[in-house]
Amino acid sequence: MSGLSGWVPLWPPAASAEAGTVDAIVLLLLGLSGAVLLLVLCLVAGFAIRYRRGSPAKRGALPELVQSEVEIGWTAATLLLALLLFAWAASAQLGEERTQSDALEIHVTARQWMWKAQHPNGAREINALHLPRGEPVRLLMTSEDVIHSFFVPAFRIKQDVLPGRVTQLRFHPTETGEFHLFCAEFCGTLHARMLGTVTVMEPGDYARWRAAQPEGDGLAREGAALFVSLGCAGCHGAGGGGSEVGVGATVRAPRLAGLYGRDVPLADGRVVRADEAYLRDSILQPGRDVAAGYAPLMPSFAGLLGEGEVQRLVAYLRERGEQPGEGR
């Protein structure tokens, strides 16, 4: 439903697939609420006028029908209606969760009072986000200080951005144009000025725009440089190939090539899937999930690395994951 953007907009523009489902539910709820409100107002106003003091209407006892049977009836009806509404809303939400995994991944970092976005090819943006129309998008978001919230009204989406954790947001832009980006969780003095614009372009324009961006190294390539400069290679081997005892490394450290997506047996018997969160935690809190058969010797990098650097290392390790085995 396009926005009634005449003189005064009464409905926000619908620029994403999610907007369709949300608007459908809202219209249903609007209709139902309007009906119930009308029913109550008619009952109250009707009875108030008809049975005002001194009016000739017939009083007498309440007819047997209107005793507790009616009460039980509408209670059950209200309960049923509530359950139906829940079922629809829940199924709509579950439907959105099952989107396909090959979405365009963009890393978003929020910090007190600005948004930073980084595209897979390294293009960086401040308080702005360019997206191609028609392609699903997955935002991997984290915060450098307090809780913020990524909110684009036109897409009907909002997701808090937490410090110390990666939160995800999937959506599917369907309309081109420029849309507001707000921070929706109170985050301090300039919370009201932590704004941005999301620009949705035709895929062709997007590709040209991205190519025109200063060719910052891809996240993964920058990650590889960091992997060496920070000394990770010293223990985990140059390509993350890991080091068996005595192969040019003073310390035994687990193989990292092909790690992403695999299940990792831990020292305390648990088995954990090596996803982004696991890679992040192992860098910042190595003592937490120690791989089975290894001593917890890795120093923690918490406080030494910014969020950006952690994201690059994680991107690098994920890329090593996609070509299993041939790393050194």
Partner: peptide
């Protein structure tokens, strides 16, 4: 109370 719509209207 419905999760998908809450995503749009909460904190507004």
């Amino acid at each position: 109370a419905s999760v998908p719509v809450n995503r749009h209207v909460t904190d507004t």
